[in-house]
Amino acid sequence: MAMLKPSLPGWKVQCIGDDIAWMRFDKEGRLRAINPEAGFFGVAPGTNTKTNPIAMSTCSKNTLFTNVAMTDDGGIFWEGMEKEVDRNIGITTWLGNRWKIGDEGKAAHPNSRFCTPADQCPIIHPKWEDPEGVPIDAIVFGGRRPEGVPLVYEATSWSHGVMIGASLKSETTAAAEFKAKLIMHDPMAMRPFMGYNFGDYLRHWLSMEQPGRRMPKIFHVNWFRLDDKGNFLWPGFGNNIRVIDWMCKRVDGEDVAKLSPVGLIPSKGSLNTEGLPRVDWDELFSLPKQYWQEDVRETKQFLDDQVGCDLPAEIREELEALQERVDSM
């Protein structure tokens, strides 16, 4: 999302940062954020001119690469660049072995990286280093969920949104410590950084809501849901602007959502799908009852095991209410 190239006309995306934000409320009660980093530290494999053209442009010069492969003409290569490099060119893998596109194995480490200055990004926002920061109207949690979880839904309250963040799960990637594709808990999308009392952390999030403060809306997105043949139900990439467009409508108070057991989902037809190949709306936003019953049960067990008596009462109440709604589907 940080370097999205929007497919909808009339939209312009500018980048503040791609990883970390420091947030605080200003004197008017508006949540604002700054980027404390000087650059981008991105996972290389899978990045190419189709999936992230802005990132490719950003790292085209003055960039450090770690554990990628090198081509014989002095260039770099990783999995995902097969259409951008001569298939016959010789390649030296990250392990120093000779290799060509089509050979067995991988040329780059799955977690190989590029490290590049942010000011090289062609869509960097002019206020990316402004100490006042930028206003935050929405917080978007996301997980790689191949089944069961809709494309987008909105929290019905701040405490409900905090519960969604605490319950976040995702299919593991090379950037995590797991190698197999498993659905793992990723609370607040910060599992690798959880080195403190998570109950206290959730209590801090809950305490942010105070009189006089303009609280951002909280959403959950899932670009990765699959159909029964293993194909993605949503085209993703630049078309994710269509989901952002819907979220912005909700921030502006537009009546384009309907209540579901898990939160507010787009009312049918409220998400702009014009120009896309056939989108199976009903499947994208379906909520399989048995799947969600098991998901809630497993989430409650995880939080009981990992947080126990430190889990804030508000989160327990939100989970109980979610379970009741799911059971009533």
Score class of each variant (00 low, 15 high):
Lys179Tyr: 08
Ala107Cys: 06
Asn67Cys: 07
Phe178Thr: 10
Ile244Lys: 00
Leu95Tyr: 07
Met190Ile: 09
Glu132His: 15
His204Ala: 07
Lys83Val: 15
Ile164Ser: 04
Lys268Tyr: 09
Glu82His: 14
Pro122Glu: 10
Ile139Lys: 00
Phe285Trp: 02
Gly90Glu: 15
Leu264Glu: 07
Val251Asp: 00
Phe193Val: 10
Ile244Met: 11
Phe40Cys: 10
Ile315Asp: 04
Val251Thr: 11
Gly143Trp: 00
Ala174Ser: 14
Pro312Phe: 05
Met1Ile: 02
Lys289Gln: 10
Gly46Met: 02
Thr49Trp: 04
Glu177Arg: 10
Asp73Val: 13
Phe232His: 10
Trp223Phe: 08
Arg24Ser: 15
Gly17Lys: 01
Asp310Thr: 12
Ile183Gly: 03
Thr156Ala: 06
Gly142His: 07
Tyr201Gln: 02
Ile218Gln: 02
Phe65Asp: 08
Met208Lys: 07
Gly80Gln: 03
Val307Cys: 09
Met1Cys: 03
Val140Ile: 15
Lys179Leu: 09
Leu151Gln: 09
Pro216Ser: 05
Lys268Leu: 09
Phe224Arg: 04
Thr58Glu: 11
Ile139Asn: 01
Asp72Ile: 13
Glu324Cys: 06
Gln14Cys: 00
Gly90Asp: 15
Leu233Ser: 03
Glu104Pro: 05
Asp72Thr: 14
Ala138Phe: 11
Ile265Ala: 07
Glu318Gly: 05
Pro211Gly: 05
Ile89Phe: 06
Phe232Cys: 04
Lys179His: 11
Gly102Ser: 09
Gly275Thr: 03
Val149Tyr: 09
Ala175Thr: 08
Leu64Asn: 11
Asp200Ser: 11
Asp19Lys: 13
Pro312Ser: 09
Gly275Gln: 03
Asp119Ser: 04
Glu274Asn: 04
Met329Phe: 06
Thr47Met: 04
Glu79Ser: 13
Met23Val: 14
Gly199Thr: 12
Ala69Leu: 13
Ala107Pro: 02
Ser270Ala: 09
Val243Ala: 00
Ile164Val: 12
Phe198Cys: 04
Ser207Pro: 02
Gly199Val: 12
Asn231Asp: 13
Leu233Met: 12
Met194Cys: 06
Trp158Ile: 10
Phe237Pro: 05
Ser157Met: 06
Thr66Tyr: 11
Gln290Tyr: 06
Glu317Asp: 12
Lys229Ile: 05
Lys268Asp: 09
Gln293His: 04
Ser60Glu: 15
Glu318Trp: 02
Asp295Asn: 14
Trp94Met: 11
Phe114Ile: 01
Glu317His: 08
Trp223Ala: 11
Cys15Met: 11
Gly17Thr: 03
Asp137Val: 11
Asp228Arg: 12
Leu64Val: 14
Ile265Ser: 03
Asp304Leu: 09
Pro135Tyr: 15
Val251Ile: 15
Pro211Trp: 05
Pro122Thr: 02
Leu226Asp: 05
Lys181Leu: 14
Asn88Tyr: 13
